Amino acid sequence: MAAQTFADLAQALQDLENNGLAAIAEAASPAVLEQLRVDYLGKKGGLSQVLRGMGQLPPAERPQVGALANQVKDRLQEALGQRVAQVQAQALETRLQVETLDVTMPGLGHAPGHSHPLQQTLQRVLDIFVGLGYQVVQGPEVETDYYNFAALNFLPDHPARDMQDTYYLPDGRLLRTHTSTVQIRYMETHQPPLRIVVPGRVYRRDTVDATHSAMFHQVEILAVERGLTFTDLQGTLVAFIQALFGEVPVRFRASYFPFTEPSAEVDLQWRGRWLEVLGCGLVDPNVLQAVGYDPEQYTGFAAGLGIERLAMICHEIDDIRRFYTSDLRFLTQF
């Protein structure tokens, strides 16, 4: 193979520059331009290949070839930089055209969600009792006969234990018929003084109609300490009712519950008529003994109310079933 001359190397450098500039001008993406940089200016690129022939030149001609090579390198690098900027600008312009937003177009509205009317009523009730110093406590919905009946002073032949009134499970357990079960569980593991409010779902074998449901929501309160009286219970419930309904007349009527003695029903006067809203009483000594409290030292009071009942009064709803239909025409009114 004949030795390369100065003229051969100079021509090779000129050809390399011309080919490189042409390829750069046609490149349409940053990735292609990066590959061209490697092909022409990399360690194993075209420029390095040409410069390997410098070793065959006389020493006096080598600096001239090196100067020509540097000029070719500078022009190729400059062309690469300019083309990269052009390609990036074109890509940005294309993206802006595709993603352009017409700020004059009307926006799309999304109606925000809100709490169910039962949840709203429940939260109002809990907020009032928490403000009175009560702690929110919850418990299981599947219960045993002991917690649902025996510990609450229900006699073995009490009608509430009948199959037609309570949902019994195959294993002998049952769906709780009231949230009083949580009171027993809480007292078993805590010592007085205590004040709790217990929200939750309860289940009864009621025929579903405008005022009854097989499942409904209940809230109960329990307070136990030394020296509590029925007057304390009355003051608590009047404060609760008037916080919820305003300055309305309230009355207490004698009643009966297995787990309280004495017991009462509480009515309020609402829009010209008396409406029953909850039941209450002093905790029966037998219930206190069942959880290990000494009824000679401690007394307590309890009260229970239905959330559906309160919501129907507050919002003047005539049918309890409306709460469970998921009819947005009804629900969006609250």
Rank of each mutant, 00 (worst) to 15 (best):
M1E: 11
D8C: 03
Q14F: 15
Q14C: 10
E17W: 00
G20Y: 00
A23F: 08
A23S: 12
P30A: 09
V32G: 05
V32S: 08
E34L: 03
R37W: 07
D39C: 04
Y40T: 09
Y40L: 10
L41V: 04
K43V: 02
G45K: 02
G46D: 12
Q49W: 13
L51E: 12
G53A: 06
M54V: 15
M54W: 06
Q56K: 07
Q77N: 15
Q86T: 01
A89R: 15
A91Q: 13
R95W: 08
V98T: 14
E99S: 07
E99V: 07
E99K: 01
T100I: 10
L101E: 12
D102W: 08
V103M: 14
V103Q: 13
V103P: 04
G107W: 05
H110P: 15
H110G: 15
A111G: 08
G113R: 01
G113L: 04
H114C: 09
L118D: 11
Q120V: 10
T121C: 04
T121A: 02
L122F: 06
F129E: 14
G133L: 11
V137K: 11
E141V: 03
V142M: 14
E143L: 02
T144L: 04
Y147R: 01
L155K: 14
D157L: 09
D157Q: 14
H158E: 11
R161P: 01
T166W: 00
Y167A: 00
L169C: 04
L174I: 06
R176M: 05
H178Y: 02
H178K: 03
T179V: 09
T179E: 09
S180L: 07
Q183A: 03
Y186M: 10
M187S: 03
M187T: 05
L194N: 12
I196P: 01
V198W: 00
G200A: 05
V202H: 00
Y203T: 01
R204C: 03
R205W: 14
D206P: 04
D206C: 05
D206V: 07
H212K: 06
M215L: 12
F216V: 11
F216Q: 10
H217C: 06
Q218W: 05
A223S: 12
E225S: 13
E225M: 06
L228Q: 08
L228E: 10
F230L: 13
D232M: 02
G235N: 10
A239R: 10
F240E: 15
E247P: 14
V248W: 05
F252H: 07
R253G: 07
S255M: 05
Y256N: 08
P258L: 00
P262E: 03
W270F: 08
R273Y: 06
W274L: 07
L275Y: 06
E276A: 01
L278I: 03
G279Y: 00
C280K: 02
C280D: 08
V283Y: 05
V283C: 07
N286W: 02
L288P: 00
L288T: 02
Y293P: 01
Y293N: 07
G300D: 05
G300L: 01
G300H: 02
F301K: 04
F301E: 09
A302Y: 04
E308T: 13
A311E: 12
A311D: 10
M312H: 09
I313H: 11
I313N: 11
C314V: 12
I320S: 07
R321F: 09
R322H: 13
R322I: 09
R322M: 15
D327S: 09
L328F: 04
F330L: 04
L331K: 00
T332F: 11
Q333K: 11
